[in-house]
């Protein structure tokens, strides 16, 4: 299904060079409607750099990023307006604003009141403001923060802050949501809740890209996984394919395959359990059926 539709977000040969250091080398990715794409890789593999290229924080040295065929500008504000929203690896909420105000800031790009309207608070202004407020409250409820709208962001527990950041990103009405390590530092219950939340977001029609360290989480969440190692795409494919690839295991876990095979099997089984997805391939099968076309689209 995903292969037949045109991609929502497409990165083509994106390279990023800092001075003499190549952080990204010709990375290409496609994200389709209704897809959850996982991006994994060891520390320093260039995952966040890639995110920054997608969101306009960095201008890629080479290559292009397009959203529904239109090239994205290299300015974060305009990228957000175009329809790509993100969260940050280290939570970057507006700590002294309330939860509701944080989400309302997310509505900024979708509201039109200028300074004059803001000064006089006319009827049209109030209607727009009321709409934004309603939508923001809906989003807070959607991410599970109902009733916490008047709480200052800094006072929220850690997990709730992550949710709030997602609600704030969703408030920009994105076509694509980029989540940078959404479960970092979460306990298993919170991680599971985050997984369900991402599924729910996918179901509303938003395509999602997730960066994570937690491979178990990624394999149980994503339709498609790309592995980034030293700035290059190593492997991409379904979780089953990626999970079994010995190069992934080596690059990612830094151990010889024999030693970690058992561990990987265990991951796979647990993942199969926790998703409850029927028809997950037997890890042994997929290990034989290697996708050796790593790095290609």
């Amino acid at each position: 299904m995903t292969a037949t539709t045109a991609p929502v977000l497409a990165a083509r040969d994106v390279s990023m060079v800092f001075g003499g250091l190549t952080a990204l080398a010709e990375v290409s990715l496609e994200l389709h409607e209704g897809q959850i794409l996982g991006l994994i890789g060891p520390n320093g593999a260039g995952k966040t750099t890639f995110f920054n290229c997608l969101t306009g924080l960095y201008t890629p040295t080479k290559g292009s990023v397009t959203l529904r065929g239109d090239r994205l500008p290299s300015d974060p504000a305009r990228v957000t307006v175009a329809g790509v929203a993100r969260t940050f690896q280290n939570i970057r909420l507006f700590p002294s604003m309330t939860a509701l105000e944080n989400v309302l800031v997310g509505r900024h790009a979708r509201m039109t009141q200028g300074p004059i309207a803001s000064l006089f608070h006319g009827p049209a202004y109030r209607r727009g403001e009321a709409d934004a407020r309603r939508r923001s409250l809906e989003l807070l409820e959607f991410v599970g923060l109902r009733g916490l709208d008047d709480e200052l962001a800094r006072n929220l527990p850690y997990g709730d802050q992550r949710r709030l950041e997602i609600a704030r990103a969703l408030a920009t009405d994105p076509a694509v949501l980029l989540l940078d390590e959404p479960t970092a530092g979460m306990n298993p219950q919170e991680t599971e809740a985050a997984r369900q939340l991402i599924f729910a977001i996918r179901d509303t029609g938003v395509a999602v890209v997730v960066i994570e360290h937690d491979t178990k989480f990624i394999f149980s969440l994503c339709d498609h996984v790309s592995v980034l190692v030293q700035g290059r795409l190593l492997v991409q494919g379904t979780p089953e394919v990626v999970r079994g690839d010995p190069r992934v295991i080596e690059a990612y876990l830094g151990k010889p395959p024999e030693e970690v095979e058992a561990e990987v099997r265990q991951y796979a089984e647990e993942a199969a359990h926790s998703t409850g997805t029927a028809g997950t391939a037997d890890p042994a099968d997929s290990a034989e059926d290697l996708d050796t076309e790593g790095g290609s689209r």
Binding site: T55, L57, D75, P76, A77, T80, A85, R86, F88, R92, L93, F94, P95, S96, M97, E101, L104, V105, G106, R107, H108, A109, M111, Q113, G114, P115, A117, S118, H121, Y125, E129, A132, R168, T172
Partner: peptide
């Protein structure tokens, strides 16, 4: 207002504000 929230957001975290 929308403008005032944007000001406060810039004060709190300029990069995050830009990302919004």
């Amino acid at each position: 207002s929308r403008i005032g929230r944007a000001w406060i957001a810039v004060r709190e975290d300029e990069d995050a504000a830009r990302a919004m």
